[in-house]
Amino acid sequence: MGEIRLEKVHKAFGTTVVIPEIDLEIADNEFVVFVGPSGCGKSTLLRLIAGLEDTTSGRILIDGEDMTARAPAKRGLSMVFQSYALYPHMSVYNNIAFPLKMAGADKSVIEEKVRNAARILNLTDYLDRRPGQLSGGQRQRVAIGRAIVREPKAFLFDEPLSNLDAALRGAMRLEISELHHQLHTTMIYVTHDQIEAMTMADKIVVLNAGRIEQVGSPLELYRSPRNLFVAGFIGSPRMNFVQGPEAEKLGAATIGVRPEHLELSTGDGYWKGKVGVAEHLGSDTFLHVDVDGLGQVTARADGEIGLRHGETVFLTPIRERVHRFDDKGEAFS
């Protein structure tokens, strides 16, 4: 079990309010991602759940039990830190065994659980090494190993992949998702990378300046962002925003169109523009088009499209995929 509920959780450092007041429910076995720009309070929220920070007011319930004042170790949670926070003076084996030793587990039990975790994480050959002798990805796995041996109610991940290079990040993303399917345990994952959020989450919580902007499944957020912030944050490349007369035609202060929802033509269309930079990725091509009267608009095209710098192109938004926002930045529903 690992059902977590936040009730009116509020955090302030002195007079600086980090989290105004948050209500959130996380179901058992759910993979929840907190995503938002740096300084949005996502890590603080995670540390409040972990018990590494005091809650200024409000309650944190785990499996219905009030844990707000409970010490971190007594909450039944495990955490994987951004820096991995491995104990540099202990071998991999002892790192993974540490929480079990602290809990006073039997030697044979410890041995079995550590070996088991090492097998799942492909660390069996490295158990005698020190963290300093491991690669970034291996260290990451040791940190995860240390978290799983406790069989926690929930795992907390604090930007665990941000110190890895791009290729390894992709691989670890898969491993963590796979782990979630194997362990059937609640996971709360903090990241600033919306791709990680989209690919891994059952439920995404978008945070901005300590407030929850929107909660929903990845596709819900993608299809119907509640406001400009979520619309701009989720999706890559970023949604194009247009203001002024073009928006007013649709009765909105701002309209938004994702690059993949623009149809391209060299003959005719709704907006006329000149191709600026074209980024050829192979599978896709992103065209940065200077549209007359609108400025720069990004459009996604076929991977092997032959358009070049300076050529004329027409863009037509797919009508039903256009998002409309009012003058406060809220979406019309």
Partner: peptide
């Protein structure tokens, strides 16, 4: 010494003395 590591120990159930 990174504070993270001490927090990790705290999460792992170590008392202040440990």
């Amino acid at each position: 010494i990174p504070g993270d590591i001490l927090e990790a120990a705290r999460m792992d159930g170590a008392s202040l003395a440990k």
